[in-house]
Design a protein around this nucleic acid. Structure first.
Lengths: 223, 223
DNA sequence: CTTTATATTTTGAGTTGTCAAAACGAAACT
DNA sequence: AGTTTCGTTTTGACAACTCAAAATATAAAG
């Protein structure tokens, strides 16, 4: 039984919800429902079915967690999604800001043959255009945990490695400000009262962004 | 209301059934059901819904026909399918024999943006790898009616223009025998008793194939 | 410790697409 | 015409997925 698109979406959402979660706490129903975009009751029903199939562990009134089988399946969905994104940008010349929606559809239908073909054409990339790691064909993910513009050291040159938000206008903004993955910059100051972070790009331009935005831009100290 | 994959499949099947039909006769239910791969009753139900939406004209106990709206929609599905096939062959280097299944899935999810991008990358091709005409974005199809190896003149050099069968093993056979679209050959003889057609390729090799197969290879007299 | 607020689960119902098998219509063959 | 045959339609049922709203559990607050 190969999983339906719906099942794939639940697993993927669960995977991402688990990743952005401290410790091994279960993902609450409400959050999963919101992530998938369905009513709470719908999520409950679906999760019970997934638990039945052994794809998740479910504790009523507490939350859900992927089983190892579920996690592997989720990783493969993510692999397809991210390879498609990388392909759309690198081969088809689309903007990194607009590939998410297309990948969202394509991830459910691209065959293994096609996925591996894309992977080969792209030279087996390890990350997609947003810096998100691409799982291997066996479902393994290597995800270094980078700091964000909110947590990295000040006045040190860092390189953007990943952006954890797919909103098109946000991505366009980052692009315009030279904050795409690969670009260098340094954090000059943080002002918690003003809820802002002040940056200086490699070209010397100064930018101030909010902390919400800053937390979505992950960086690595430049070597 | 954008049509579901199911609706698209019915319309596409209907379009193709109508094309391979002499005169303006309606397509009988049974044939449509077989083409779509569902039970007869299912087709009846679906066709009534399609008629309700104005996509087909339906005469109970007689058959179905696409309305102009339905025909346009079908053409757009075919456009997506064929551009995807051309893309998979030309850009991704896949074999013409194996792209059909992938295109069958992708045709329902590729966005307009993506379709037009592919179209541009391919230089606005007029036919796909099998020689099937690619409808334009406004739903127009220019389909020259070629003769087949069964109807073309004998001992005259002709060029393969189109193959009206997607069976992978048949396509691989044609490829091996240099009978892909673009290749020249001539029909040396036909033997209706033996149900066969005798060909000679440009390289001088002689091949004998059955009339069923021959009727699926369309040709044009070489200029 | 009881009340209130919040999250979760249940229930009842609807949509889309499907099938098997019974009923039916049209046509073909004595 | 009468009857068999064949294709088509109807019927009843089911699977997957969804929602709104009622019921319930848990947690928080007084």
């Amino acid at each position: 039984m190969l999983p339906s698109s719906t099942v794939e979406n639940y697993l993927k959402a669960l995977y991402q919800a688990e990743s952005s979660r401290t410790g091994k706490t279960l993902v609450p129903m409400g959050q999963l429902a919101t992530a998938v975009g369905v009513a709470p009751g719908t999520a409950t029903t679906m999760v019970k079915a997934l638990a039945e199939s052994g794809l998740v562990d479910y504790e009523p009134y507490v939350g859900v967690r992927l089983s190892s089988a579920g996690a592997k399946l989720a990783a493969l969905v993510l692999r397809r999604h991210r390879l498609v994104e990388q392909f759309l940008v690198e081969v088809m010349g689309m903007s990194w800001a607009e590939v998410h929606e297309d990948a969202e559809q394509l991830e459910h239908v691209v065959s293994d043959r096609l996925v591996e073909r894309m992977d080969a054409m792209l030279g087996h990339p390890s990350v997609d255009p947003h810096g998100d790691p691409i799982p291997t064909a066996d479902g393994t993910i290597v995800a270094p945990d980078y700091g964000s513009l909110l947590t990295c050291p000040l006045t040190v040159t860092v390189t953007v490695t990943r952006v954890t938000d797919q909103d098109a206008s946000f991505l366009r903004f980052l692009e315009k400000q030279d904050l795409k993955p690969g670009h260098a910059l340094e954090v000059e100051a943080r002002d918690s009262a003003a809820d802002s972070v002040q940056l200086r790009t490699a070209s010397g331009r100064q930018i101030t962004i909010g902390t919400q935005a800053a937390s979505k831009v992950l960086v690595q100290e430049s070597s």
